[in-house]
Simulated scan of single mutants.
Amino acid sequence: MDLARLDALAGPDGQAVLAELAGLGPAELTGPAGLRLGARLRERYPTELVVDAFGLAELRLRARAKFAGAADMWFTRDGLEQASAQEVAEHRRARFAGLGRLADLCCGIGGDLLALARDHDVLAVDRDPVHLWMAARNAAVHGLAVTTAEADVREIDLTGVAAAFVDPARRSGGRRHRTGASEPPLAWCTGLTERVAAVGIKAAPGVEHDVVPPGWEIEFVSVGRELKEAVLWSPALAGARTRATVLPAGAELLPAPGDPVPVREPGRYLLDPDPAVTRAGLVAELARATGTWQLDEKIAFLSGDACLTTPFARTLRVLDSGPWHQKTLLRRLRAVDAGAVDIRRRGLAGDVDALHRALQRGLTGSRRVTLVMTRLADRPWALICEDA
């Protein structure tokens, strides 16, 4: 979609079509009902306008998972996929508290801009005129005034800017860049500190620790046990080398010195750490904080005899524990009245999908359980658990 088509969609006819689509569900937009509605609308409005309106309406439905105000916002498919979710952006905003003017570089459709501009004067920069148009509109929808600049972020003047946030593109033309690659490259992003001391960089959750310069912090952020992204913070904003943040709780786990974590056989409960904790390398810190131990020094599962509630892990009650023998699994599952099984694997190879199909066919019980495939002191091990 180009700017002329966007302007048409923002005009009276476009808004009239969007108003007729507002509140419709996916089936009403894409199924037979959607085809009939589209045909009726094309009798009154240009076909291109109707097509664009349907496309935006579908994206607004998808965007509700990320933005509370999605119904009035503007999106492209790539822009929505790459945009930070509202709760993640709001969490990140706090790190810039007390600073002056901010630059939102590679702002896209404005996912982070909406949070940053709530209490900062923000310069939003992107070289994509469509995304920049949308970022300005999305800010206006939320009552926010921002300054925009259509430019390559590598050429923008940052005079008077106190801090910068950059979200380098990890895809272009609908295709993802190779792992670890971005545009602009990570080295350019970290080099921003030569001009602005306070810098935050959004990165893929798979970013390798060793590519991040010394003195920088790597924050891994998960939402509802799904690892969403990593954020790299320059020394002026860093608080530790790594950090695990779990939303919506807003809980943070930081490195802390302590005694080695003991390795023992499973207790009555199993803790499955949040992926932000494992990516941040903070399993030992979680174990010391919860008084638990590891089953294997190389595996992230923790165990204890008390039922613990922590935002940093899922707690499971151990129903059965023993060496891994695939031939005996069905019998063990039936013995605990399993009717449905999920499989969680760490440190043990195997075709999880094939195993799940084979086991599920033989289960008729009433319990939903989790089969944990792992290692105990370097021995293949199976635990059958249920949510605590």
Rank of each mutant, 00 (worst) to 15 (best):
G200Q: 04
G200V: 12
I201S: 11
K202F: 01
K202E: 03
A203D: 04
A204I: 03
P205N: 01
V207F: 06
V207L: 14
H209A: 15
V212S: 01
P213D: 02
P214V: 11
W216E: 07
E217Y: 12
I218W: 07
I218H: 08
E219V: 00
E219C: 10
V221A: 02
V221R: 13
S222Y: 05
V223F: 05
V223I: 12
V223Q: 11
R225P: 05
E226T: 07
L227H: 10
K228I: 08
K228C: 04
A230R: 08
A230M: 05
V231G: 02
V231S: 03
L232H: 04
S234T: 02
S234L: 03
P235L: 03
A236L: 10
A236P: 02
L237H: 03
L237V: 00
A238P: 03
R243C: 15
A244Y: 01
A244C: 07
T245S: 13
V246C: 10
L247H: 08
P248Y: 01
G250T: 07
A251F: 00
A251V: 05
L254N: 01
P255W: 04
A256L: 09
A256S: 13
G258E: 12
G258W: 09
G258C: 12
D259I: 01
D259Q: 14
P260I: 07
V261R: 02
P262V: 02
P262H: 03
R264S: 11
G267M: 09
Y269W: 15
Y269I: 08
Y269S: 03
L270K: 06
L270E: 01
L270A: 01
L271N: 04
P273N: 06
P273F: 00
P273W: 05
P273D: 12
D274F: 06
D274S: 14
P275A: 09
A276F: 01
T278I: 15
R279K: 14
R279E: 15
A280W: 10
G281F: 09
L282W: 12
L282T: 12
L282R: 12
V283R: 09
A284H: 14
A287C: 10
R288T: 06
A289E: 11
G291E: 13
G291A: 14
T292C: 15
L295T: 14
